[in-house]
């Protein structure tokens, strides 16, 4: 049995633990439905909408994993920045007439399904068989401790990631400007 926190008996539905579990099931369904829309929708705008739904579900899952800060960052960065940028790119670069977003050929749909199924089942079987041991926690993982880690143990990575972001922004501007006529 892999690590799980101690709730011994099954909670009733209308207790605090039961309602928490119900909300978790709903959020898991939201994540999966959003992902399904994102990867199967015919039109790109619907794909982005599904991606937003999926990311909101993932943010809720982060709440259940004791990380409210990362959950808020997920909504702020992914939903607020990445998805909106993708929506702008769709408006700029994807004319909605002559658009078919479905499978590229008669066989590509089933073959892609088989490939993704093999990958998924392989990962699930691997997770089922593996044994993970839980180690005692050395701190609580609060926002304050994240900040201390960022500026002590991971300060080099922190600086590097800001340089990467700066170069990415400049590079994006240069690439998008090249070849513009006016």
């Amino acid at each position: 049995m892999n690590p799980s926190m101690a709730i011994t008996e099954a909670p009733g539905l209308f207790t605090a633990n039961g309602l928490t579990g119900l909300i978790f099931l709903v959020m898991m369904a939201v994540t999966l439905i959003g992902g399904l829309i994102a990867c199967t929708a015919e039109r790109l705008v619907r794909s982005v909408a599904g991606l937003i739904v999926c990311f909101i579900g993932v943010a809720a899952l982060y709440y259940f994993l004791n990380s409210p800060f990362v959950a808020l960052m997920q909504i702020l960065i992914y939903v607020g920045a990445v998805c909106i940028t993708i929506a702008f790119a769709i408006m700029l670069a994807a004319p909605e007439e002559n658009k078919k977003n479905g499978p590229a050929g008669p066989l590509s749909g089933p073959l892609a399904f088989i490939t993704a199924g093999i990958v998924t089942i392989g990962l699930i079987v691997m997770a089922m068989r593996a044994k993970f041991t839980s180690l005692p926690k050395v701190n609580g993982g609060s926002v304050k401790e994240i900040g201390i880690q960022f500026l002590t143990s991971y300060s080099m990575v922190f600086e590097l990631i800001s340089i990467v972001l700066l170069i990415a922004i400049i590079g994006a501007l240069v690439i998008a400007r090249a070849g513009r006529s006016k």
């Binding site: 994102a38 790109l44 999926c54 499978p103 892609a112 998924t120 990962l123 699930i124």
Partner: peptide, 19 residues
């Protein structure tokens, strides 16, 4: 794992770069 599989499926079937 299921989300990963959905991503793989989407990469193979989508016909546009944005997808």
């Amino acid at each position: 794992a299921i989300l990963f599989g959905m991503g793989v499926y989407g990469i193979v079937t989508h016909r546009t770069l944005i997808g």
